[in-house]
Simulated scan of single mutants.
Amino acid sequence: MKQAGVGVAITGCGAAAPDAILTNDQLSAIVETSDEWIHSRTGMRERHILAPGQGLSELGTQAAAQALAMADVAPESVDLILLATSTPDDLFGSAGKIQSELGATRAVAFDLTAACSGFVFGMVTAAQFIRTGLYQTVVVIGADALSRWVDWTDRTTCVLFGDGAGAVVMQADEERDRLRGVELCSDGRLNHTLNLGFGGKTTPLTPDFSIDLGGYQPITMNGREIYRFAVAKVPDVISKALFRAELDATAIDWLILHQANQRIIDAVAQRMKMSSDRVISNIHEYGNTSAASIPLALDGAVRSGKIQTGQVVAIAGFGAGLSWGAAIFEWGR
Rank of each mutant, 00 (worst) to 15 (best):
Q26K: 12
R228G: 03
A69W: 00
V31T: 11
Y227M: 01
D163E: 10
A4Q: 14
K201Q: 15
G14M: 10
R45V: 06
D144V: 04
R180A: 13
A245K: 02
A241L: 04
Y216F: 15
A245Y: 01
L190D: 04
L247R: 14
G223I: 02
P75A: 00
N288S: 09
S117Y: 11
D79W: 08
K233V: 00
A251C: 09
D173L: 06
A4N: 13
S304D: 14
Q62P: 00
A167G: 04
F129H: 05
R263H: 08
G300A: 08
F119M: 03
A230D: 02
L134H: 05
M221A: 08
K201E: 15
N261Y: 01
D144S: 03
Q62D: 11
Y286T: 06
R176Y: 13
L160S: 06
T113Q: 15
D277S: 09
R278I: 05
G287M: 09
D25K: 11
F92L: 12
T11V: 11
V150N: 09
G197P: 03
R278C: 08
R131Y: 09
D111A: 01
D25E: 15
R224N: 13
G5C: 10
P204E: 06
P204H: 00
F209H: 13
G305M: 07
S100Y: 11
I38D: 02
A143Q: 07
Q99V: 01
L112V: 12
I256R: 01
L68Q: 02
E246I: 06
L68E: 00
A314H: 02
A301M: 04
T85H: 07
L22R: 01
T42S: 12
I280S: 03
R41T: 06
Q26M: 14
N195W: 02
A145M: 13
Y216R: 14
R271T: 08
Q99F: 01
Q62R: 11
S57C: 08
V312I: 15
T220S: 11
V268E: 03
D236C: 07
I81M: 00
D35S: 14
F129D: 00
L68A: 02
G215Q: 09
I226C: 02
D35P: 13
R47Q: 04
A314E: 05
L196Q: 12
L27M: 13
G215R: 07
Q26F: 08
I21N: 10
E246P: 07
H258L: 07
G321K: 11
L56H: 05
V168P: 10
S275Q: 13
Q3W: 13
S57V: 07
P295C: 10
E101Q: 09
F318L: 03
I219C: 06
G162H: 01
V124A: 10
P52E: 15
R155G: 05
K273F: 05
F243L: 14
V182E: 08
A126C: 09
E36D: 14
